[in-house]
Nucleic acid binder design. Sequence first.
DNA 1: ATCCAGGGACATC
DNA 2: GATGTCCATGGA
Length: 282
Amino acid sequence: MYRLDPDFFNLDYTLDCGQVFRWEKNGDWWTGVVGNNVIRLSQEEDSRELLIDSKLPPEFFSRYFRFDDDLSSIYESINRDLLIDRAINRYKGLRLIRQDPWECLISYMLATASSIPTIQKRIYLLSQIFGQELEDGYFSFPDPETLANADMSMLDLCKLGFRADRIKMAAEEVCSEELDFDALFRLEYKYARERLMRLRGIGEKVADCVLLFAFEKMESFPVDTHIRQIIQHYHIDDSYFETCTNLSCMGDWGREYFGRYCGYAQEYLYYQKRVEGFVSLY
DNA sequence: ATCCAGGGACATC
DNA sequence: GATGTCCATGGA
């Protein structure tokens, strides 16, 4: 057990905002599985110090929680209007997380048209049935080979619905190295997105989530149902915005409007909408 | 009962 | 390019 003292960091917002699905809070402590590690974290009320119950070194958490991102300059660059300004101030310290590409890919393929508790349940079942038990009740995420070779009757136990065959196909592509994660890292956002969207079950939204959360593409602007509702609800005085009705246009709008770090803007708007609905700006 | 949830594929126009 | 329907599942 040791401590870190990062600035601009709120553990609750970061783990609760809906970007990761394998953390749960009991009392003051969060428990989660990252790779083959069961990790427990807490944050002190007043000092804001991060308490870490894990054998992993500080460098691991600096990387995982993106302490290398300069949040104050990111806030400055994305703060374009009252709505995002409110979200930034209310949820200050929410950081994007550097996720594992494979787990992130499958997780967001399983997330389509589902509530967050349902997604969490699917991922838990998938890990319980196909992963390794690390501690009582905590399982590693299954590796690509296991899912590629999984038989459908076992996969159906995870309640994936129509998503089951999609993730099996994705697992096969990863195993055969037809889908190369290293290559995706090197590709520009636009081309990495096109590559991911060639997979069955990956459209613009899932591709953007995976690129934002696992491939360092901060210019991703995932348009899910909440973001769509936000854009439709707040008729911001912007001619480009006014004509923006379909989803892919909303993504382009977000990129242009918020700039290089629009992925951060997206996450703040998303979380604010989930927690508070359509907030008043007066 | 009906609608919605971190959507996407496919047909149709 | 824009629109409608279907796809499982679970909770409100």
